[in-house]
Design a protein around this nucleic acid. Structure first.
Lengths: 190, 190
DNA sequence: TTGACTTCTTAACTTAAGTCAACGAGTTAA
DNA sequence: TTAACTCGTTGACTTAAGTTAAGAAGTCAA
């Protein structure tokens, strides 16, 4: 039975058996409890995560408020933007549930890229795909009202609404919790 | 004297002389006039662009309105999201000024990646950098008011306001032209 | 030169998000 | 068992963006 991470990678390209073995051997796991903080604002970072089970939220604090940047769930990659750099993190990473991840780090990755150029090629392709998806959601966000954004979230990631609190969802949608509450009420009456 | 594209690439890593020559030999140029359309909604795409001089705007049409996705200027890369794929473009690319570009295409790129793995590695790094930047601007957008977004644009890309019309800027900021006009007026009186 | 456009602005009005305050329900900890 | 929290909701009020319409200035082409 293939590991989740190999399933994820083979969506993009066929993985040679040699690379498959190398990935399986190098993969290592970590488990976190609900509420655990993986990264704090101001911290340095040397790890990235592939989520096997659970949910991770990135957020920063502005005007004393937590602003949710993104929710990451199963089969998604979380890469702190300061990974391997000497700059402090601008944001937090927090587990919204008990979470199991594969952990990677830049040194191991570079070693793997060196040994398996196919993997670096794959990383480029995946980075480009994620970039395109993000561009699309950014664009959709810009040209939508808060209500449309909420409906879109309902459609594309309905389970997020069970996994995160409403004030977290609200800041993710770029609005205040009171407004989200009113939008929900408005929609029920439609 | 180094070409602009080589200057751009060498910001990220040192380029071997061999690769430098290959890039210079393979580089080819196109010139467009103000108003030229590089890509239409529904078209297929087989080219990407590195801007040497000028300005390109991506936009789509929703409810009969042009919604600006992004403005690209000198030393930036424009990659249609359907490049090399059999899916039609969701958006337009238009020159806001006379524009000179280096043109690339997937076949050539893949050939170059094959010959020069260093170049693919570089592409991965650049994709990751752009991804991080985009994430940051998406996040800033979400947690800002229209007025703050406009001020941010004034600070980070002041010349855009000379190069694009106000209704283009407005849709880029996710607001209506009338609102942008009012924001400008409000700020003058401050 | 004229007329048709486009661009930007302004005004009046509508709509909805932000703000502030309060409340009930549920949770946690002393 | 309280007391202190958090969370979601609601209400009253403020603020600003959306909408519609109109007009002034500039551009372009017949």
């Amino acid at each position: 039975m293939k590991s989740k991470i190999l399933k994820y990678l083979s969506k993009y390209t066929e993985i040679t058996e040699q690379l498959e073995n190398a990935i399986n051997e190098s993969a290592y796991f970590k488990s976190y409890k609900k509420g655990d903080i993986l990264l704090k604002e101001g911290d340095f970072s040397n790890e990235c995560y592939f989520i096997l089970e659970g949910c991770i939220r990135s957020y920063f604090v502005k005007d004393g408020e937590e602003k949710t940047i993104e929710f990451y769930t199963e089969e998604e990659v979380v890469t702190p933007s300061n990974i391997g750099k000497s700059t402090p993190s601008q944001y937090f990473l927090e587990c919204l549930e008990d979470t199991v991840v594969n952990v990677g780090n830049p040194a191991l990755e570079n070693e793997m890229y060196h040994k398996y150029p196919q993997l670096e090629s794959l990383s480029r392709v995946i980075a480009e795909v994620i970039l395109t998806k993000q561009q699309e959601s950014y664009t959709a966000f810009k040209s939508s009202t808060p209500e449309e954004r909420y409906l879109q979230l309902l459609k594309t990631r309905p389970n997020l609404l069970q996994r995160a609190s409403q004030h977290q969802i609200a800041s993710y949608l770029g609005i205040r919790p009171e407004s989200l509450s009113r939008i929900r009420k408005r929609l029920i009456n439609k």
